[in-house]
Nucleic acid binder design. Structure first.
Length: 301
DNA sequence: GTATGAATAT
DNA sequence: CATATTCATA
């Protein structure tokens, strides 16, 4: 099972060196996972989800069943726990929402207000036309919308930062993130947004008339030239802080989780994805009996 | 044919 | 607004 991380084989565009092999072991130690175990989710949110707040979750270091790719690399370096020990990353997913907010048919009737919560026993069974998408062997299935959770985004940012804008291409990022279920398109899309964000910030680094420019973002704007490996050297890039206003640490005016006006019929809300993500690390953190996933798969092509 | 980046759609 | 999907292109 030992696998070596293989990446960038030379796509054809740009002919820079594709040498990469340092972060494999020295990826940024992002920092501590402390915040990770911290309530990334507000209590109310948790309540809403009905998920046990689990107050006694000191360090979730307990779970550590990852190690797939970087398993062999780790060992040296005492880094607090950069990527290697970051535990397996899973994504959180949300079912395809036909219409999230507004924008439905005409304007006057939005018949979308129903809440049948209560009743201890909701035996509402007649429903579901039975189309459970279940196909363990399904090769392609419409994956649910991927939610870029703060943690995920963080990973993303870190990887990108350490890759250097030059090598930060979707495929590589995806591979380095090593998040199961993440697809190139996912990354590409997010990368696009991220780039836009960077660009926007470049022009107005400190400007900010009153935009909602979060004072976060220490302007880590990566220099246009960065070469992480290879070459040249050095680059003492320690690591960048999460530039995006993501990962709302202090408060949560309504940041990452954005609008959770989810109108799920199921109280549990969580869907059972045949493929990925049943676990909710950062927030719910339900480790312990995390089922090992058929990691063998689909990713990493 | 694959991968990327931007545009466009949901 | 956040992602997904499509399109043109390297």
């Amino acid at each position: 099972m030992g696998e070596e991380v293989k990446m960038r084989e030379n796509g054809g565009v740009d002919g820079g060196d594709d040498r990469v092999s340092e972060w494999e072991a020295g990826l940024p130690s992002a920092d501590d996972l402390a915040p990770l175990s911290q309530p990334l989710i507000s209590p109310e949110l948790a309540s809403a989800f009905s998920i046990t707040p689990e107050p006694s979750r000191t360090l979730l270091d307990v779970s550590r069943a990852s190690e797939n790719t970087l398993a062999g690399l780790r060992g040296h370096r005492t880094l607090s726990q950069g990527f290697s020990s970051n535990n397996e990353f899973k994504s959180f997913v949300e079912d395809r929402d036909p219409m999230a907010a507004g924008e439905a048919d005409a304007d006057g009737s939005d018949s979308r207000k129903m809440r049948k919560i209560d009743s201890a026993e909701e035996a509402d069974s007649a429903m579901r036309t039975d189309n459970s998408v279940e196909d363990p062997s399904a090769k392609s299935m419409k994956r649910p919308r991927l939610v870029w959770t703060p943690q995920l985004h963080k990973r993303f940012v870190e990887v990108v930062a350490h890759l250097g804008i030059k090598n930060a291409v979707p495929k590589t990022i995806m591979q380095l993130m090593n998040v199961e279920g993440l697809t190139r398109e996912n990354v590409a899309s997010h990368l696009q947004k991220y780039r836009l964000y960077l660009k926007r910030m470049q022009g107005l680094s400190s400007e900010g008339p009153s935009s909602s420019d979060p004072l976060f973002a220490s302007t880590p704007v990566p220099q246009s030239l960065h070469e992480t490996t290879g070459g040249g050297g050095g680059h003492g890039n320690g690591h960048a802080a999460v530039p995006m206003p993501y990962g709302g640490p202090p408060h949560m005016p309504m940041p990452v989780y954005g609008h959770m006006g989810m109108q799920m019929g199921n109280q549990q809300g969580f869907q059972s994805n045949p493929y990925m993500l049943p676990q909710m690390d950062w927030s719910g953190n339900r480790c312990g009996s995390v089922v090992s996933y058929p990691n063998s798969g689909p990713n990493d092509k």
